[in-house]
Design a protein around this nucleic acid. Structure first.
Lengths: 185, 185
DNA sequence: CTTGAATGTCAACACGCGTTGAATTACATG
DNA sequence: CATGTAATTCAACGCGTGTTGACATTCAAG
């Protein structure tokens, strides 16, 4: 091949990574096995080790993502809550986002919990500060995530029926009002 | 002994159960081992099996508890949110409650998730219905748990700093307002 | 003292895990 | 074709797990 120096190894490497993300997302850190990932990627388990070093390192790579890209930098102040709720809900419906992965693993892996804390400090707090002002941004951000993560937990992990079935419009409205108050009052 | 037919076995059995609850609460279902529980109870692992059958059954017993006892049956309508928030926060600070145990394990054990759903249907929904009326109680209850479990998750499992340090008074106020709206508007 | 049930211990099993290093195949280049 | 390197597989190790059944201890009752 003359044009593209796309190494074969990179393709299988990312196949492994994709399988790993899917497995971590579905089953959490503890219940996910290297052997299972390898099988899903149609590859030998040893290859996973060769490319990623260890299960921990593989998880670190799988959990390394940015989410701030999805958020606009400016939102009309009165629409803050609604808009944020809407964007956040969409974040959970896409296939390739890492947030579900982290939440699934957070209870069984201190590594995952630490990563969530890191994302909170480096991405969530600055976002809230930019949107609603520096004053008390850290506390506001914390309240915001307590509601947003709680919703994700109940809807996607615990699968509490009314939340699973609740139309997005109603969720945006109810959760949006809460976020609006946490951010602006 | 003439008076008390308190079998010795019952005492060790409940020692095992106590050790199991502590372990499940701290480390979640997957990361808890029968051997670890046995060591903490100063007992042979085989004895745990003899008394509880299997790890799954032991977990089922450990997770079998009622929480509605902590809630009063009548609360002035305007104080609903505040009062509920206050009681709920206290629920998480006591030593022997089972809620933290369930939340820790919910992400890695479908059994735990199912138990939470069951508690939601049999205890939370009726409670909300009794406090704030039958109309839409199930949806209201779902929104309430999305905030309360979210707070517990962020504060006690993820340990997001501002929430860990936030004084109870402020938490009661902020979360209380949210619960009030979910229950009455 | 003897019996027999209740209570607890021991050693081992089969299994699945993460991980490793040697062996093997695929493949571009001379 | 020959050769060397990249890509991948194979077979196995050591470990910790849940679980089991045979064995030992305790102890109240005849």
């Amino acid at each position: 091949m003359t044009t593209a120096p796309i190494k074969k190894s990179e393709r299988t490497k990312s196949a492994i990574l994709a399988a790993a993300r899917a497995a971590f997302t579905e089953k959490g850190y503890e219940n996910t096995t290297i052997r299972g990932i390898a099988a899903a990627a149609e590859v030998d388990p040893a290859l996973v080790m060769r490319y990623f070093g260890s299960k921990e390192q593989l998880f670190a790579v799988a959990a390394d993502f940015k989410l701030s890209a999805a958020f606009p930098h400016k939102i009309a102040r009165k629409d803050l809550g609604r808009t944020l709720a809407e964007i956040y809900l969409r974040l959970w419906e896409g296939e390739e986002q890492g947030l579900p992965l982290l939440l699934r693993s957070a209870a069984s892996s201190e590594q995952a919990a630490e990563r969530i804390r890191e994302i909170f400090e480096t991405q969530t707090v600055p976002l809230i500060a930019a949107l609603s002002g520096e004053a008390g941004a850290r506390d506001r951000a914390a309240l915001v995530v307590s509601q947003t993560l709680g919703l994700a937990l109940c809807r996607h992990i615990l699968k509490i029926p009314p939340l699973v079935g609740m139309p997005r419009k109603k969720l945006v409205e109810e959760i949006g009002k809460t976020l609006q108050r946490y951010m602006t009052e």
